[in-house]
Each structure stands twice: as C-alpha cells, then as structure tokens.
Design a protein around this nucleic acid. Sequence first.
DNA 1: TTTCCTATCATACGAAAGTACCAAACCGCA
DNA 2: TGCGGTTTGGTACTTTCGTATGATAGGAAA
Lengths: 137, 137
Amino acid sequence: MKKTIFVFGILIVALLSLFQLSSYSIMAGDLSSEVFIAITAIVFLIVGFLLQYRRKERLLQPKPAPIDSDKINELGITDREHEILVKLSEGLSNKEIGETLFISESTVKTHLSNLYSKLSVKRRTQALQKAKQLHIL
Amino acid sequence: MKKTIFVFGILIVALLSLFQLSSYSIMAGDLSSEVFIAITAIVFLIVGFLLQYRRKERLLQPKPAPIDSDKINELGITDREHEILVKLSEGLSNKEIGETLFISESTVKTHLSNLYSKLSVKRRTQALQKAKQLHIL
DNA sequence: TTTCCTATCATACGAAAGTACCAAACCGCA
DNA sequence: TGCGGTTTGGTACTTTCGTATGATAGGAAA
C-alpha cells in the first residue's frame, strides 16, 4: 500500500511538472505542444508497463507450490498418513517406505488402507492421482 | 509479430489524432493543453499496462507441462506404451486398462514391462514419477 | 523374401499390494 | 480416570502386479 501511494505521488508530480513545462515552453514558443504530448505518451506507456510488470511478479510467486493443508484436515488425513503419501509419490514400495520412516511394512499398510478410504480410492496410483487433483501433494 | 505491428499502428494513429485534436482545440481556445496531456497520460498508462499484461500472460502459459515427444522417441517408447502410461496415470489397474483399450490384461502387462525397462524403473509408481520428471506425461 | 519391430495373448510363478481383523501403547482432553 | 484419536504392529488371506518365456501375426525395411 505504501508503495502504491508513493508511485501515484510520483506520477502526479511528473504530470504537474509537464504542465508547467508545457505552459512555459509554449509561451516561449521554442517547442510545440505535440512534442509534449508525445513525451507524455512515451513516459506513461513505460510507467504502465513497469507497474504491470511489478504486479505480475507478485502474482507469479505463489504459483509453484500449493499444498492445501485445509483440504488435508477436511479429509481427516493425519500427519503420518500424509508423510507416507509423499513417499508414495516418490515411487517407493511399502517396504521401502517402512525403511525410510523406521516402521514396519505392516504399519505402512495400515496407514495406506486408512488413507485410501479417506480418499475414496482403491489403489496407490488412484491415491496419487486424487491427491494431486486435490492439491494435497 | 503481426499483432505488434497492429498495436503500434493503433498507437501512432491515436497519437496523431491527439495532435490534431489538440491543435484544433487550442486554436479554438475551448480546452487547455493540460487536459490533453492528462488524457494522453491516462490512455498510454492503460495501454502500457495492458501490453505488459499480455506479455506476461504469454510467459505464464507455457508453465504447466508440455509433452516432450522428442524424449519419448529418444527412449524408444512406442505409441501403445505411451497410451498405456496415460491410463496408468489415471490410476487404472492392468485389468481396467485392458478393458478401456480392448486388449487383454496379459498384453497390458507385456507393454508395461517393456515400458519399465525403457524408463529404468521397477514399479508403476516409479514409472509415473519418472514420466512426470521427464515431461512425457 | 527374410528380418526386425510392434502388438497381441497365454501360462506360470513369485513379489507386492491391499483387506480384514485384532491389539497394544501413547497422548490430549474432559 | 476414562474416552477418543493416532501410531504402531501382527496374522491371514485375496488380489494385483511384475517377470520370464514363448507364441502368433501384421507391417516396414533391407
């Protein structure tokens, strides 16, 4: 917000300066009004360009990683289950998931079964697809 | 390129119109030059804004996921194999893939086995991860 | 024509994955 | 202190997946 006020302040000052300069120069007769209009056009074209550039930059930032934790809670998915879901997306087998998390394969299966029912799916590949679709991965 | 020429053509015409209008009005004395400068400023601010917006839109579009068919050929993946890979990413079982493509489960298994070796993976979930990483999905 | 590639299908076997129970330990909360 | 949820683990069983091997058929290339 502070930036917006600052930018518009600058713009108004620039505009007023142009007014003054144009009045003076036209009186003096050394420059035509067309030149001022042209200058104004170019300057504000660039300003508008830059303003939009800045604005889009901000919109670009929050794009890459949207992990919807609200959705996770909404579905009642626990931390552990989500942790296992991540390992799943890395292509690990149940056994490998167990090894990386220091738990038995049985436990992994239990968590996955619960996860499947919460996602209303029957297979790990379906879980992956649904998880991505729901932005919880 | 055609668009760029068109847009700049419009801009030049607009500018010339303003010149004419300003000359006429100043002669007639019914409007001050400040008003024209202000109008010019606003118009070109908006134009600059819109131009940058379009440009950014184009930069944003190619983000999601282009399907790298060169990579597919490079890995020697056949059309049928890739077709099955797509079904895989939809979370279908071998049997279901067979049904949607009107082939037997055996054939699906054969294609998948070949696909796995071409992708250097051992499981379907790994295949999915690798396929996305290589932009062939 | 013979060879190579692709697509198709089958059988058999072992390895994963998934389901259905059950149960113990822990933790926070009422 | 007991209740409910989470995490952990187990057994037993079914289903799915993956591999190996072989076979047939069509099309493209040599």
